[in-house]
Write a protein that binds this DNA or RNA. Structure first.
Lengths: 133, 133
DNA sequence: AGAATTTTCTTGACTCATTCAAGAAAAGGG
DNA sequence: CCCTTTTCTTGAATGAGTCAAGAAAATTCT
């Protein structure tokens, strides 16, 4: 499967991958819960380790909007972005209009070697939007 | 001064404002240190409260790149962005080419009412870039 | 100005995501 | 099938940030 990434194939890792695929944008705690429905006895540490390993290998992507805990998604390599609700924290995917990373160019890069432009659109989701008005 | 924001004028708040002006992108801990050079006896709670109040009032802006603790800056209202070094965490300001928030339009807004597009350019700062090669 | 009222600050405990560490268990290579 | 390396389990620790109760300071009202 994903032995291509030089990662040993273990039950926890498979379960974590499945869980992230099934629950995009879920936080670590939810993922631990989801993983335990497959393997009831996994330690939280194993999940943390798996998530790190898979993220480092590029099989998962970690996102963490300000004010939120770490969340993971399996959609990688397409440099897409996110919309986040300021009220309930709901997250949605937004395709990048450009495609290639970094999709944007900084007006002044301060000499940095930039490889990615991360965009987060902040606002209110439909539900929170109507509730407030 | 900033009584316009309906905030009481207190020593801690003034000191916090000064500290953030003097140390852009500093984290809360550094700010506590800086504030204590003015008022040696301020509680960390007062700094946290002041930062929240000033941020809510729009006098400060809070940024929190993934993997970093909360940081504050006094440059507000111009919708600028940031470059962040993946290695050392250094942060630089990047003017927004467009100017008005939200400076970008999502290709698919999922029905969200978007008010801001936050952009973080990730890469390596000049120092870390040369050290690695 | 002085008293009343409200907000803010101090102190100290506490939460909770995440990390660290040591030994046990499982994977992959020979 | 055994050996080496990586990964998982268990359990404790870290640390940014929050909560809460009472004291102190800012405005407001008389």
């Amino acid at each position: 499967m994903l032995r291509d990434a030089d990662l040993r194939v273990t039950r926890p890792r498979l379960a974590v991958l499945q869980a992230v695929h099934a629950h995009p944008h879920a936080d670590t705690d939810s993922l631990i819960g989801a993983v335990r429905q497959e393997l009831s006895q996994v330690s939280h540490q194993a999940v943390y380790d798996s998530l790190s390993a898979l993220t480092a290998a590029g099989l998962l992507r970690r996102i963490q909007p300000t004010g939120s805990v770490a969340r993971y998604e399996s959609r990688v390599g397409d440099n897409h972005h996110h919309v986040v609700c300021r009220s309930c924290g709901a997250i949605g995917d937004v395709d990048c209009a450009v495609g290639e990373a970094p999709c944007l160019t900084a007006s002044d890069d301060h000499g940095f070697t930039i490889d990615e432009a991360e965009v987060i659109y902040w606002g209110l989701c439909p539900d929170c939007s109507t509730t407030r008005s």
